[in-house]
Protein backbone atom coordinates (compact mmCIF):
# COMPACT_ATOMS: atom_id res chain seq x y z
CA UNK A 1 0.00 0.00 0.00
CA UNK A 2 1.46 3.42 -0.89
CA UNK A 3 1.98 6.07 1.74
CA UNK A 4 0.22 9.42 1.41
CA UNK A 5 3.56 11.13 0.64
CA UNK A 6 4.02 8.88 -2.42
CA UNK A 7 0.77 10.13 -3.93
CA UNK A 8 0.83 13.89 -3.28
CA UNK A 9 3.13 16.84 -3.96
CA UNK A 10 3.61 17.91 -0.35
CA UNK A 11 2.24 17.60 3.16
CA UNK A 12 2.91 20.66 5.33
CA UNK A 13 2.20 21.41 8.99
CA UNK A 14 2.57 24.60 10.99
CA UNK A 15 1.22 26.20 14.11
CA UNK A 16 -1.76 28.47 13.59
CA UNK A 17 -0.98 30.47 16.71
CA UNK A 18 0.30 28.81 19.91
CA UNK A 19 -2.84 26.75 20.51
CA UNK A 20 -3.61 25.23 17.11
CA UNK A 21 -1.79 23.29 14.44
CA UNK A 22 -2.87 23.11 10.81
CA UNK A 23 -1.90 20.50 8.20
CA UNK A 24 -2.20 21.00 4.45
CA UNK A 25 -2.09 18.17 1.94
CA UNK A 26 -1.16 19.62 -1.46
CA UNK A 27 -2.25 16.86 -3.81
CA UNK A 28 -0.77 18.53 -6.88
CA UNK A 29 -3.30 17.25 -9.44
CA UNK A 30 -7.01 16.60 -9.88
CA UNK A 31 -6.25 12.87 -10.11
CA UNK A 32 -4.27 12.74 -6.87
CA UNK A 33 -6.96 14.80 -5.10
CA UNK A 34 -9.71 12.48 -6.36
CA UNK A 35 -7.80 9.48 -5.04
CA UNK A 36 -6.60 10.92 -1.73
CA UNK A 37 -9.48 13.09 -0.45
CA UNK A 38 -12.05 10.27 -0.09
CA UNK A 39 -9.43 7.91 1.35
CA UNK A 40 -8.65 10.24 4.28
CA UNK A 41 -10.92 9.19 7.13
CA UNK A 42 -11.44 11.77 9.88
CA UNK A 43 -11.50 9.14 12.61
CA UNK A 44 -8.14 7.73 11.54
CA UNK A 45 -6.59 11.18 11.32
CA UNK A 46 -7.88 12.03 14.80
CA UNK A 47 -6.47 8.76 16.18
CA UNK A 48 -3.09 9.48 14.56
CA UNK A 49 -2.86 12.68 16.59
CA UNK A 50 -4.41 11.29 19.77
CA UNK A 51 -7.38 13.62 19.36
CA UNK A 52 -11.13 13.43 19.98
CA UNK A 53 -12.64 13.30 16.44
CA UNK A 54 -15.01 16.20 17.12
CA UNK A 55 -11.99 18.52 17.69
CA UNK A 56 -10.72 17.93 14.15
CA UNK A 57 -11.70 20.52 11.52
CA UNK A 58 -11.50 19.51 7.90
CA UNK A 59 -11.56 21.59 4.71
CA UNK A 60 -11.77 19.94 1.30
CA UNK A 61 -10.63 22.52 -1.26
CA UNK A 62 -10.92 21.06 -4.79
CA UNK A 63 -9.98 24.41 -6.42
CA UNK A 64 -6.50 24.00 -4.94
CA UNK A 65 -6.45 20.20 -4.82
CA UNK A 66 -5.86 20.58 -1.10
CA UNK A 67 -7.24 18.80 1.96
CA UNK A 68 -6.64 20.77 5.15
CA UNK A 69 -6.93 19.62 8.77
CA UNK A 70 -6.80 21.97 11.77
CA UNK A 71 -6.74 20.84 15.38
CA UNK A 72 -5.91 22.06 18.87
CA UNK A 73 -2.37 21.27 19.96
CA UNK A 74 -2.33 18.60 22.66
CA UNK A 75 0.56 20.52 24.25
CA UNK A 76 0.59 24.32 23.96
CA UNK A 77 3.46 25.63 21.83
CA UNK A 78 6.61 26.19 23.88
CA UNK A 79 5.24 24.93 27.17
CA UNK A 80 7.34 22.57 29.29
CA UNK A 81 6.39 19.36 27.50
CA UNK A 82 6.26 20.70 23.95
CA UNK A 83 8.63 18.86 21.60
CA UNK A 84 8.22 20.83 18.40
CA UNK A 85 8.04 24.62 18.72
CA UNK A 86 6.83 25.24 15.16
CA UNK A 87 4.66 22.15 14.80
CA UNK A 88 6.07 21.45 11.35
CA UNK A 89 7.09 17.84 12.05
CA UNK A 90 3.47 16.81 12.64
CA UNK A 91 3.31 16.57 8.84
CA UNK A 92 5.48 13.45 8.93
CA UNK A 93 2.90 11.47 10.91
CA UNK A 94 0.27 12.33 8.34
CA UNK A 95 2.37 11.78 5.22
CA UNK A 96 3.33 8.28 6.35
CA UNK A 97 -0.21 6.91 6.57
CA UNK A 98 -1.16 4.17 4.14
CA UNK A 99 -3.66 5.06 1.43
Amino acid sequence: MPMLRDLVRKVAAKNAGPFQVTLDIFCGSDEAYARVAPALKDKEIARLFGLEPQLLRRFDIPDLNVVKFSMPRSVVQGSRFDRDMHGAQFATLLEEIDI
Binding site: A16, Q20, V66, S70
Partner: peptide
Protein backbone atom coordinates in the same frame (compact mmCIF):
# COMPACT_ATOMS: atom_id res chain seq x y z
CA UNK B 1 -3.30 31.99 -8.95
CA UNK B 2 -2.26 28.79 -7.17
CA UNK B 3 0.69 30.26 -5.23
CA UNK B 4 -1.46 33.22 -4.15
CA UNK B 5 -4.63 31.38 -3.20
CA UNK B 6 -2.66 28.64 -1.41
CA UNK B 7 -1.16 31.26 0.91
CA UNK B 8 -4.53 31.61 2.69
CA UNK B 9 -3.81 28.13 4.06
CA UNK B 10 -0.57 29.17 5.71
CA UNK B 11 -0.59 29.34 9.53
CA UNK B 12 -4.34 29.79 9.30
CA UNK B 13 -6.66 27.25 10.89
CA UNK B 14 -9.56 28.33 8.64
CA UNK B 15 -8.49 28.89 5.01
CA UNK B 16 -11.51 31.06 4.18
Amino acid sequence: PHSVSAHMLYENSDPF
